[in-house]
Design a protein around this nucleic acid. Structure first.
Length: 450
DNA sequence: AGCACA
């Protein structure tokens, strides 16, 4: 009972070390918090956080072995467990005697972030979605994407390391908000480190790379047509069971497409029960519900690839939605239930911020399971330094609605400042004022028109 | 909730 020397080491027989191993830490745990935790027991000379596959482990190294013993002993007999922000932290002696800090390029702050997108459908995350996500923290200069053994990755270039750091701190380990992705895309987790790059080289605007500082950069031929898998949801990429609800993506939307326009176009094939419009991947999408699958099939076959307007404008791409019955909360300019003759619903409600029939954009922050993270840089005028909402409540919900189409139109690109000035989706496409509105331009849908 | 290293 006394002899332990050659036994495997169990938790109660771990030999003391001035290094303590901590687990079950919260995501946001910082070096400072580790120091706070250890400080009552001695001098913390080194820490290492975000350790392990889940990055919820850490190490604390004390100056003296007795200090580590004091901490272990204290919590061994304390009725209160060690905690970081209310979360119980489990402590034990490390099996090493000192912390080895391998500072790599991934740890050295820089203005370019290396993003690894994890998830079954990571490759389907468009560069526009990434741009949207990262723009919440400051002007994004450039993005390149590529495929490596690590999976689908992107480099995102900010002006400076501070902006990059705020984005990294806020987004590392988070998922891309669901409302930014097609319904059928599996959750995508972002893993973020610093890149050693300082200035990315982008030759073309394409589906793989963008330079947002240079609107005159030529568009890569591959991005002009054909290669639009990202905008299309998952057409052809995945098995899509037929459905009475069609998902329509509208490409090259030089003209506004209204609910009434969609109703008119899709009504040609049968009665429409419901329509819900929303922005996704920076493009307009709509769900159109027919009473039956057969009608939807006919409509899809007839309309796929056709344009609502002459000249290749507002090209439709259709897929089958997973929905079978849309939930329309209220009738407004973006969603309508044609089956309900409820007077209360017939008159459009006043506009609601971030209104979304399918998902409530205003609550998007809840995608993050209530975990709070620091304010994006753009929020400072509205919020104190440590707001509770991140981009969930104030910033990003406005953006999907205001996102200009970037590849399919040739608007002058919004200047950097506008991104942080944007509020509540009010940014209209610049340079479009001379184009007749669809209200005065009857959409002449022609089945044979390409 | 169980030991780090791009």
């Amino acid at each position: 009972m006394a002899s332990v020397s050659s036994q495997p080491q169990f938790r109660y027989t771990q030999p003391p070390s001035k290094v303590l191993h901590l687990r079950n830490l919260p995501w946001e745990c910082t070096e400072e918090e580790l120091i706070e935790l250890g400080k009552p027991f001695g001098k913390v000379v080194n820490t290492k956080c975000n350790v392990g596959a889940n990055r919820n482990q850490a190490f604390i190294e004390f100056a003296d072995l007795n200090q580590a013993i004091a901490m272990i002993s204290y919590y061994a007999s304390s009725s209160e467990p060690a905690q970081v922000r209310g979360k119980t932290v489990y402590l034990q002696y490390s099996n090493r005697q000192e912390i080895v800090n391998n500072k790599t390029t991934a740890d050295i702050a820089g203005n370019v972030l290396l993003i690894t997108i994890e998830g079954q459908d990571a490759r389907l995350v468009s560069i526009d979605v990434l741009h949207l996500v990262f723009s919440a923290f400051g002007f994004v200069h450039k993005i390149t994407t590529f495929e490596k053994t690590a999976g689908f990755q992107a480099l995102v270039q900010f002006s400076d390391a501070e902006t990059a750091t705020s984005a990294k701190n806020a987004l590392d380990g988070r998922i891309i908000p669901r409302y930014l992705l097609s319904d059928s895309i599996a959750p995508c987790t972002l893993r973020i480190t610093y890149s050693a790059h300082t200035d990315l080289s982008v030759k073309f605007q394409s589906h793989r790379s963008r330079d947002y500082t240079n609107p005159y950069l030529p568009v890569a031929p591959s991005a002009i047509d054909g290669n639009c898998q990202f905008n299309l949801g998952l057409d052809g990429k995945k098995l899509e069971p037929e459905s009475n609800v069609l998902l329509a993506s509208i490409e090259n939307m030089q003209y506004a497409v209204t609910l009434d326009v969609l109703h008119m176009v899709f009504s040609a094939f049968g009665p429409i029960q419901k329509i819900a419009m929303f922005d996704k991947n920076g493009a307009l999408q709509a769900l159109i519900q027919y009473p039956d699958i057969q009608t939807a099939i006919v409509a899809k076959e007839a309309l796929e690839g056709h344009c609502i307007y002459d000249g290749g404008f507002c090209k439709l791409h259709l897929s089958y939605s997973r929905h079978t019955d849309l939930s329309i909360k209220l009738n407004n300019d973006r969603s309508r239930d044609y089956t309900v003759a409820n007077p209360a619903l017939v008159n459009p409600q006043p506009p609601v911020l971030g209104q979304q029939p399918i998902q409530t954009m205003g609550q998007a922050g809840h995608q993050y399971n209530g975990t709070q993270y620091p304010a994006p840089g753009m929020g400072q005028s509205m919020m104190p330094p440590q707001p509770s909402a991140g981009w969930g409540a104030s910033d990003v919900p406005a953006m999907p609605q205001s996102m200009p189409l970037q590849m399919t139109n040739h608007n002058p690109y919004a200047p950097p400042a506008s991104m942080s000035q944007m509020s509540h989706g009010m940014m209209q496409m610049p340079g479009q004022s001379g184009i007749p509105s669809p209200a005065s331009t009857m959409p002449h849908f022609r089945p044979n028109h390409m």
